[in-house]
Design a protein around this nucleic acid. Structure first.
Lengths: 336, 336
DNA sequence: ATGAAAGCGCTAACAG
DNA sequence: CTGTTAGCGCTTTCAT
């Protein structure tokens, strides 16, 4: 208790007392308060004393205990990140960018994977409250019995929005419209759509954008060519299969996870007939290299992450609770 | 101090005292010790009392403060994860698997990206000491002035090994040999290699495996067809360019990052001549779909992560300080 | 079965 | 400029 194993590779593992301001104080024969002041640049410390303290602290490898700070109610600088997963390239890139920003800002980033499951989400939030995380960036999990956001942690919703609170969102309406227009222009008349459940904010808006695009192209929406459900690769696969079976000649995706699943089906199905169209959701590094290129709605990941990081630092939210970033449609072979 | 903002979305933001065992005790008119005991299942508590306490704690949304525990020297259950990045599919999949395991084991996973830079690595470790992380899983950054591993944090090295301490490594010698054999069998005589600096444990062993493969195929190693350096996509690009310029007809990669860079060069160069061979390091989901398929040395990511997680839980290290997992060569079009 | 005291590392508020 | 005290949330130890 209060002591830690000494693993210095010397072989003789012993016990080593923790280096604290008190131990340094004892060591220097002064009060621990002087050490505290010296270490936190308080003006009222003799230059000599301060330097002696800093030197000794350096030598001993002192690090301020953030637990002690947290217990007093100071900001822990811990940020939680709740994502469905980080194998999906979008989430991975987002987490990567956010982690870099957090390192820059000296924030601790704790990651929890929810698999879009509400129970895992609440558990993750509970654990974040344990460590007194100040804020949590989260892709809110789907679910009707949506538990409210945590009271004592600032929640920043990503991509989707479950509660009327801070959110960093994607404005993809135009891009989805462009996608449909492009496919229609390429001669497609039966264009399908797989996307998230309209119960989700993102699911609702994306499907609406798709339908608007159809209308603008003078095409009628066919319920048989639409599939919605939980935002998983599985839905992408089953939805794509069903839609192609129903005679669609092109498919537009409305979700990151869904897109990866749908792509595999498209690749299988369009093996012989290269005239089937496909538009993924979320651009992927390999898309240019697959077939003649896979078209996609490109989401500005880095901008999303930067914005989030800025929110984490600034307590103020000048632009209002929702921050939107426009996506762009990227044309490639699969949509020509 | 000791108080937190109440963001309950009611609009009237007020102040709300933190829920502690003491506040619950006051609330119930008993001692905080009784609350502590009730909450931690101590036998010496009247059933009535215990239930009253648990009920009230539940209602108030009490969560044990891990800071208070940490300050007393208890295990924080915080695990650090130091990776060069998480955009590379291998690292992303590893982080994903490890995060899942950590959630299962109720460990807090703090992620830091080092970009394979020693300074960022030390900074990350310093910050982990601040929060009293118990262990750190890390891909040790390259560098001759290699700072030693932290003394008060259990370090588990991944993929590479800088110090003679616990490590989870990949045994890729056979796979790399198979790759060379396959290429040689396909008629390639000038096979190149881009890999990490031999200063790195992984760089050294992989190049040796490549050379051994050449020898076994009856080919001679040509220094012009080898490139080594820091394990970055940049090296992959420059190395691949140089090696193809030097007349190589096939290329084997010896590193995750390097591989992604080299792939782009190969894709550009082999646009017209589809007879150029390529073997990536670390299998990627999209590889089967690129051209006629991209061959690769497949690393058992999930197994690595599972092993790491097991180490995090078990204090014992029965199998000795190094745990090795064999990689496999996956043949695809690019190596035929 | 319950409570009181002490102490973990740190700093705000006083006292010199 | 420096030192003392107290208290943050929690558990261990020692009473009761």
């Amino acid at each position: 208790m209060g002591r830690i194993l000494c693993r210095d590779g010397t072989g003789r593992e012993g016990r080593m007392a923790r280096v604290t301001i008190k131990s340094i104080a004892r060591d220097l024969g002064i009060s621990h308060m002087t050490v505290s002041r010296a270490l936190s640049n308080h003006p009222n410390v003799l230059r000599e004393t301060r330097e002696a303290v800093r030197k000794r602290a350096e030598e001993l490898g002192y690090v301020r205990s953030s637990a002690a700070a947290a217990i007093r109610g100071d900001d822990t600088r811990i940020v939680g990140l709740l994502l469905p997963n980080i194998t999906n390239e979008f989430y991975a890139r987002y987490a990567n960018a956010l982690a870099l920003e957090c390192d820059r800002r000296a924030l601790h980033l704790i990651i929890h994977l929810t698999d879009d499951d509400i129970r895992r989400e609440s558990e993750a939030l509970r654990r974040l409250r344990e460590v007194q995380a100040g804020s949590a960036v989260m892709v809110p999990a789907p679910g009707t019995d949506a538990p409210t956001l945590p009271r004592d942690i600032r929640a920043i919703q990503l991509i989707r929005r479950r509660a009327d609170a801070e959110a960093v969102l994607v404005d993809d309406a135009a891009a989805l419209g462009d996608a449909v227009a492009q496919l229609a222009g390429a001669g497609h008349r039966r264009i399908g759509y797989v996307g998230a459940d309209p119960g989700l904010s993102s699911g609702r808006s994306r499907r609406a954008a798709f339908r608007a695009g159809l209308a603008r192209a003078g095409l009628v929406a066919d319920p048989l060519l639409e599939a919605t459900g939980p935002p998983t690769p599985d839905l992408g696969r089953s939805g794509a299969s069903r839609i192609f079976d129903a005679g669609a000649t092109a498919l537009v995706c409305g979700g990151f996870e869904i897109s990866t699943g749908a792509l595999t089906i498209w690749l299988e199905r369009s093996g012989s007939d290269r005239n089937t169209g496909f538009v993924g959701y979320g651009d992927v590094a390999a898309y240019p290299w697959i077939r003649d290129g896979v078209a996609a709605v490109s989401v500005p990941v880095e901008a999303l992450a930067e914005c989030t990081a800025a929110l984490l630092t600034d307590e103020s939210t000048p632009n209002g609770p929702a921050h939107r970033f426009v996506a762009e449609f990227v044309v490639r072979g699969s949509a020509r």
